[in-house]
Amino acid sequence: MSNFLTVKGVTAGYGDGPAILDDAHMTVQKGKVHCIIGPNGAGKSTLMKAIAGMLPLRKGEIEFKGENIAGQRPDQMLRRGIAFVPQERALFPKMTVRENLKMGGYILNNDKALTSRIDEIFDRFPILKERADQHAGTMSGGQQQTLAMARTLILRPEVVMFDEPSLGLAPKIVREMFGIVRMIADTGVTVLLVEQNAVMGLKNADWGVVLDLGRTLFEGPSAEVLADPRIQELYLGGRRAA
């Protein structure tokens, strides 16, 4: 198995509250698209936040390139090459598209390098170049999501995590978002997604991870996960109320 990024027995929760993640596992392979699925409250977003360093782990390890990185701050994760786009409102609505991209490279602290990297982003995402001087908050949902995803690329990360990039978007725009995800993965960047719509998420991913009640039920190549009868059971009932 790969030793790129591995989540091992992670238990975590918010403040003194109950554990949202309870013994979660996940294997991440370099350059692939991974989709985390599971019913509401399964801990999908929490798993991403745990990897991003946004909440402390009560138990478990996060191993990245052979090193346990659990317990580091978000900015330290960012410096290691792990970027995270939280669900909705990841942008600075009253800053322009260009300023948002500059914030994406805040830790670079190098204006010259930043300018050339922003130009690279503009070449890859012409719509952002067109809107460069527009306030982010005035763009459409799809454009905002595009900006949020593109902004992570400024730091040339190794792993990007998107929490429900399809949220609140029309089906046609959702297809565009998955197109961008694939385009990012094609450049060798590893992608982790959370997706509410399991079928759509898995169809656009290489690897599927199924969470339920904070625990990893199983993971595997997405086609296999999609065909697994346990998925039917999980989504179409039969489970006791938790």
């Binding site: 991003a52 900015d75 960012l78 009253k94 300023e99 914030m103 805040y106």
Partner: peptide, 19 residues
Amino acid sequence: YAIRATTQNREAAALLGVN
């Protein structure tokens, strides 16, 4: 930049490495 970003979205600013 950091001040404006923090005003508009504290969580996102922290995620981008703003103290």
